[in-house]
Design a protein around this nucleic acid. Structure first.
Lengths: 210, 210
DNA sequence: TAGAATAGTTAACAGCGTTAGCAAAAGTAA
DNA sequence: TTACTTTTGCTAACGCTGTTAACTATTCTA
């Protein structure tokens, strides 16, 4: 029965949900701070607990374990990446130009969000089989596959597997990024890398058009 | 003064060196076993100590820290890789065929020596700035750069930077491998990957020849 | 106001890399 | 053979880590 009391109670329940949500947010927020300032290796449950000014077990009320927290960031990372790629893509009508713009945007994203990227690709992290749990990956795939398919349909071999080309594109970029990231130097050889990307994009879009 | 006694003493010293060497070997040996059976995450100083039937501090008489042990394996890994690539290369006189053979050999190596590869590229490991300490990397670079340079010298643009092309080649392969490794499935989609490599090799050697 | 549910705590477990300090064994010299 | 020195290897600890059981104090319900 819906009495005045139950209505009041509902307000209280909602406040509690809000509070819980806010703790959850501050966990993620403080974790982000730590990671951005000191890298993934510095992130520990105890440090998060200290930062949010709660005791350690509170964190386990919001996340099953540390990996779940990291998975959240991985999701966030792919979301951000898709956002950036979309922005780059939308600035060009031509599919070849779109691919090129996205390649550069991908590269920019990786180095502007080093921490995210390293988590997303398990660079220096003990997390391997989390990839399957990321829905955002699909958005990412579709985004890149669209202009590829367009280019292929105009080519002399319109029945080429666009999925194959997508993987080629992705592999190349990720390889370049991860090798550069491991070498430590933020930019590596900035000029050389620009050249490599250009060289690759030319070869890639070329192979799509013929 | 070189008395009979000092000569005897020298034998003892040598035996001690041998013994020390043997402990060092068994550290690496047992570590290898653990890693191959359970992955890098399962490797701990305490587990090595238990396996070699010595106490923990003995390990620190042979290696400065855990990272030093891993560095040893990284070196070993690159050594093995160079070996495999050389074998593949030596079976073909034509530089284009050499590049192709090495690409496949690289792929094979990565999945036949998953543990090594993951260590070498920091996949799931907290070791980033160890790359610079690997001398074997140079051998690797030279091995691949040679046929690239050959192809380029015959092309219409013989002054193209071969170092650039080497990086393109390497990035592509590593990207493909690491994305596949993270997806968990050992082969992923074996047929698709074969196709991707072929597709890539074609585009790559093509771009070297024109 | 008494009882139930929730929130948040302390303290522990089992593991990690690393190292200081000590005991026993081995080698050296008289 | 005995006394001294060096080497060898050990125990035990420090300060971390992720995770959880058990408890208290607070808040809500009837």
């Amino acid at each position: 029965m819906l009495t005045l009391l139950t209505i009041l109670t509902m307000g209280i329940a909602e406040r509690k949900i809000r509070q819980k949500e806010s703790v959850r947010c501050s966990i993620l927020g403080e974790a982000r701070k730590i990671v951005e300032q000191e890298g993934w290796q510095a992130l520990s449950i105890r440090r998060i607990a200290e930062a949010i000014e709660y005791s350690v077990p509170v964190i386990y009320d919001h996340f099953a374990n540390k990996e779940a927290i990291m998975l959240e960031f991985t999701r966030e990372g792919y979301g951000l990446l898709v956002e950036e790629l979309t922005k780059a893509k939308d600035q060009h009508p031509d599919p070849a130009a779109q691919i090129e713009a996205m390649a550069y945007a991908y590269w920019e994203f990786a180095f502007n969000n080093k921490a995210y990227y390293q988590l997303m690709y398990g660079l220096g992290m003990p997390s391997c089989d989390t990839v399957r749990q990321i829905n955002e990956l699909q958005a990412f795939s579709e985004l890149i596959q669209a202009p590829i398919t367009q280019l292929l349909s105009r080519s002399s071999k319109p029945d080429t597997n666009p999925f194959l080309k997508l993987h080629t594109f992705w592999s190349m970029l990720h390889g370049l990024v991860s090798i550069n990231m491991m070498s430590g130097t933020t930019g590596g050889n900035e000029a050389l890398n620009r050249q490599i990307i250009r060289d690759f994009i030319e070869g890639f879009t070329g192979s799509l058009r013929t």
